[in-house]
Design a protein around this nucleic acid. Structure first.
Lengths: 164, 164
DNA sequence: TTTATTGCAAAGCGTTTGCAACGTG
DNA sequence: CACGTTGCAAACGCTTTGCAATAAA
């Protein structure tokens, strides 16, 4: 983790320098909080973690910093189904991946599947559509929850009822 | 269109009857507005259209009615990327489909591809994950916008793009 | 008549913004 | 020193909720 942070910090510095913006203590803290936290953290989670090291940091600063990270290509915004809030995931070092979201415990796993991506391109091409990016999420029960384990039962609640 | 509406209305009636709820003029209007409007309508769009026939209808009624339709299996909630608001699409008569979203004009096309779905099942199965439903959206430029046509340039804006 | 429903306005919630104080370059 | 940044609080936009009046059944 230590190294990911310094790579990201360097990238941020470049970005800032390139536009006359400034590197600040707060932005560093938010960056650390963002990368240290479990992937797919919400602003609140990042905010809490950032405040652990610097209790004066405000919500607005975190929002602004995350916007900056997205612009700098360090973070990607995600809006999962039935979850009003935005979540962020690291954008560096990662080739594209998709998500498996457990509707019971809220666990989010990642996967990638080139065959699916290829098919997507075919579908789009057939309609003259140029894909810039995509989003694929599979919702259901993770192995643990299927096994009946009585877990945390987190936020993400079941939603309408479509099937596969 | 006339027939889709009556099928949906019948389904709604059943649902209401089954739980001691009531069929009202407003719910009918909202149902018509929802089904008449282009697919993927937001609450505001449905609200406007419903008010065309009944200017007294309030926002709250539309929100409540849409919640009811989702519960009754008539509508499905959708939350597209970079669009804070919820959109609804008809859930009846439709086998599952996915979306192509144009990031310039906001156009939303539908498609289905069994091969992709099968691969998704494989990915999930490999992790012991039981898929209940999924969401696949391809974002980019539609054929018209690629051709340089100067269209409406609607709401949906590209994902990152914040300043600070 | 009973009680679900409505419309309004107020409240909620996540996110954004105005502004004076502050800190980086 | 200039000007980007911060924290606070107020503003926002979408959605939900409390409540007295209304209308299905």
């Amino acid at each position: 983790m230590g190294d990911r942070v310094s790579v990201a910090r360097e990238r941020l510095r470049e970005y800032l320098r390139g536009r006359g913006l400034r590197a600040t203590r707060q932005r560093d803290r938010v960056l650390e909080a963002f990368l240290a936290d479990a992937a797919h953290a919400s602003v609140d989670e990042i905010y809490d973690r950032a405040r652990a090291g610097d209790p004066a940091i405000g919500h607005a600063t975190v929002y602004r910093a995350m916007g900056l990270f997205v612009a700098a290509g360090i973070a990607k915004e995600r809006r999962f189904h039935a979850d009003g809030r935005v979540r962020y995931e690291p954008a560096l070092d990662v080739d594209h991946h998709d998500h498996l979201v457990c509707t019971r415990c809220g666990d989010i796993q990642e996967f990638e599947n080139p065959a699916i991506e290829r098919l997507q391109e075919e579908v789009a091409a057939a309609r003259g559509f140029a894909v810039a990016y995509h989003r694929l999420e599979l919702y259901g029960l993770c192995a643990r929850c299927r096994a009946g384990e009585k877990g945390p039962e987190k936020s993400l609640d079941e939603q309408s009822g479509s099937r596969v």
